[in-house]
């Protein structure tokens, strides 16, 4: 008798898929809380009162969804990770209150759609970048424009969307896939497909 100990269906989450996704989300929540203390004040000062440029930070909040999906690669992974990360943000204190949960759903939706289209088989930078860009559009067009920036003139609105997409591609997609590749190289992701792939390439 021989069997391969790994996942059978993309819909059947193993215990380790759930726990890793959840812990990843909490750890990224802590990292962002550290980001607030370390780096974000600099960005806030630079973009205060000028949200179109602030859109360049959008990708940071989409990164957990991308990283979670690249690791777990199952339907719902992005939403699960992003919702928990948002909850951590809530607990530690943030600037937007409970509405971050709405943002979380939108920021994860783009990632879910892109990975579902490719049947969860493909990963890597191109996928991550597409996913990041689509999520950025959802977040800005689907929520922020109507909740926060109702009175912007059309040209500013467009600029905000474009800045966010750039950030979705490079910050969420680029840094997200770099991060996951780095983690895979340490062996921490050996229980996941992405860990196996990184071994095979070497």
């Amino acid at each position: 008798m021989s069997n391969t100990v790994s996942a059978k269906s993309v819909f059947a989450w193993r215990g380790i898929d759930l726990i890793t996704a959840a812990v990843l989300a909490v750890a990224l929540g802590v990292a962002f809380w550290g980001f607030d203390a370390f780096v974000y004040p600099l960005i806030q000062v630079a973009t205060a009162g000028f949200p179109p440029l602030g859109g360049l930070a959008t990708g940071v909040w989409i990164l957990p969804a991308v990283a979670g999906m690249l690791i777990i690669r199952r339907p719902g992974a992005a939403i699960f990770v992003e919702l928990i990360a948002a909850n951590v943000e809530l607990t530690l204190g943030n600037s937007w209150g409970v509405t971050v949960l709405i943002s979380a759903l939108l920021q994860a939706a783009g990632v879910e759609i892109i990975f579902a289209l490719f049947g969860y088989r493909r990963s890597g930078f191109a996928m991550a970048a597409l996913a990041g860009a689509l999520s950025a559009i959802f977040e800005i067009v689907g929520f922020e424009l109507s909740a926060y920036y109702t009175d912007f003139s059309p040209i500013w609105k467009l600029l905000l969307v474009l800045c966010s997409m750039v950030s979705g591609v490079f910050v969420a997609g680029g840094l997200g896939s770099l991060l996951v590749r780095g983690l895979a190289r340490t062996g921490a992701l050996n229980a996941f497909a992405v860990g196996r792939e990184s071994r095979n390439k070497e």
Partner: peptide
């Protein structure tokens, strides 16, 4: 430099977190 240090911290934290998640599972 601060951004660099932040990325080092994030990476170290994530490796540790993911390993402990395996044991918790």
């Amino acid at each position: 430099a601060k951004l660099n240090e932040w990325s080092r911290l994030v990476f170290g934290l994530l490796v540790q977190a993911i390993r402990s998640a395996g044991t918790t599972a």
